[in-house]
Write a protein that binds this DNA or RNA. Structure first.
Lengths: 180, 180
DNA sequence: CTTACCATGTAAGGCGTTACATGATTCA
DNA sequence: TGAATCATGTAACGCCTTACATGGTAAG
């Protein structure tokens, strides 16, 4: 079992780029990490408190007007912790594709239902792909400026490649099911 | 929130193909569903008891010699339950790619470490791909015989397509990181 | 004026893994 | 005879999501 909790590492990773509020951390996850990682407020805020308690992050008040705001930053200890986690090999990559599960048992439900699941999957991928392509284009235009962008681009391109493979598969899978 | 627990659906799905023991269910998951779903004994056995309690599965003794063995089968109620789950749209497909996470924060650790994570990922994919290709070939040779095979083939081809996309990405990602 | 967004947090409960516990059989 | 595989199960615990609770601000 891992000593490092993933949520801590993600937060620390984001804080290694810039100081952020809990709300902003969630935002970053929902945009940059969306297609390969996710977390809810219910895990982010407690993790943030815990990180501060352990000295891996610091907090400061950043309130403007009447709006409360707590800005978190990474400490030196936090940076070491992150580096150590980055150094050790990946434990496991996990996927839980409900779409494939429903497809695997498709004979119970029939061809039409299988196709409708593939259609829904295809729609979702098609709607997300332009965003990824847009992000890649933007990143390519100022790759020299910031090193973090280079790594971000890497993950975006992973997304683009796999999404395109998904779309190809959707087409072929439907063709196979329809020729009957 | 879903009323249906995924573990119940997976088990019921496997039982819709054939009668199985808990041990065999785990085996099926570790082979057929491996690259898009997983579960441990700690979730399978309790789920099985629960399924019987709710009348969705039946159990019978299948002991041979001195070896105890409990064979589970799907009931009519179980089949309806499965069909209903199969009918409703997919809730969500989830992935948690630790590899991409470590890569996203790669600037903290440097190019060499990023490459070593990609290498490890590539190795894993390369070692699993032949198994998928072998499965696809076998399935293609008796696709007419059994309808369940057709759907199994669909998921295997999903695996092959995405794995190939992964490998392409690995190559390009490393090339990008190395040109420096 | 109301909807969407900014912003933080807690409590309950679900889900599932890991580790443990036990014991038979098969094969080298 | 020891390792691998067959076979079933429980207990502790961790992690996370959902739902709830609260309140300010910006924009239409």
């Amino acid at each position: 079992m891992a000593i490092e909790k993933k949520i801590d590492c993600v937060i620390l990773g984001l804080l290694s780029h810039e100081d952020l509020t809990g709300y902003e951390i969630k935002k970053r996850m929902d945009t940059f990490l969306k297609y390969f990682w996710g977390a809810s407020y219910g895990s982010i805020y407690p993790a943030l408190s815990d990180l501060v308690k352990r000295g891996l992050a610091g907090k400061r008040d950043g309130a403007e007007n009447n709006r409360r705001k707590i800005i978190y930053s990474i400490t030196e200890e936090g940076r070491s912790y992150l580096k150590e986690w980055l150094r050790i090999p990946v434990e496991k990559d996990e996927l839980r594709y409900e779409t494939l599960l429903k497809l695997f048992f498709g004979n119970e439900a029939g061809v039409l239902q299988a196709i409708s699941h593939i259609d829904a999957f295809e729609e979702k991928i098609k709607s997300e792909l332009p965003y990824l392509i847009g992000a890649a284009d933007t990143l390519k235009n100022h790759i020299e400026m910031d090193d973090t962008h280079k790594y971000y681009l890497l993950t975006v391109e992973f997304g683009i490649k796999t999404y395109r493979a998904y779309l190809e598969w959707c087409k072929e899978a439907k063709a196979m099911l329809e020729k009957e």
